[in-house]
């Protein structure tokens, strides 16, 4: 009979007291690594080309991003050559003002280190990129980075 009584007790519950600690640890990790998207994209997320010779962009505060791709809103057409600055669709002519505006946010000494990252869809046309590049040259924003994901280049 004593055998039966033992069985009734059953297995002791697994101690889950440490579970919140584990979850909190994960939580803090993600909180620290999170960067919220600052601008919402008016374009479809550009399908970045892949390349092998990519370099990481350092100093995020010194990077200004220009998006090129297809607009979500069909009234802008279906081509992959729309330009987005901040959070609105713009043209290449607006690029200088955009760059000058972004310069006001950093100190004078850091301006030469500012980089413009061009996030363009792989189906965009070189013409659009060239327009942007010429405008960037006009305002002396000479460091650019063609955003690409690291891959085998195919």
């Amino acid at each position: 009979m004593s055998k039966f009584r033992k069985k009734k007790k059953g297995m002791p519950a697994v101690n889950t007291a440490a579970l919140p600690d584990i979850v909190f640890m994960l939580l803090f990790f993600f909180m620290v690594t999170t960067t919220m998207r600052e601008t919402d994209l008016k374009l479809e997320a550009p399908r970045l080309p892949s390349a092998t010779e990519v370099k990481k962009l350092e100093h995020k505060s010194l990077v200004t991003t220009i998006y090129v791709g297809k607009a979500k809103d069909p009234k802008y057409g279906t081509g992959y050559n729309r330009i987005q600055l901040n959070d609105k669709i713009a043209t290449a002519d607006d690029v200088p003002a955009f760059i000058i505006n972004s310069r006001t946010k950093v100190s004078e000494a850091e301006i030469p280190f500012m980089t413009t990252s061009i996030k363009a869809d792989r189906e965009s046309n070189v013409g659009t990129i060239t327009d942007i590049r010429l405008k960037l040259r006009d305002v002396n924003a000479l460091k650019i980075s063609y955003s690409a994901s690291k891959g085998d280049g195919n």
């Binding site: 939580l27 962009l57 990252s117 650019i144």
Partner: peptide, 24 residues
């Protein structure tokens, strides 16, 4: 909370081909 941060996290480091334009 964890799931919220998981969803909003973007961990991609911006990388690309850097170029220096010539001056005008």
């Amino acid at each position: 909370l964890l799931i919220f941060f998981l969803v909003t996290t973007t961990m991609n480091v911006d990388s690309g081909i850097s170029k220096k334009l010539s001056e005008k």
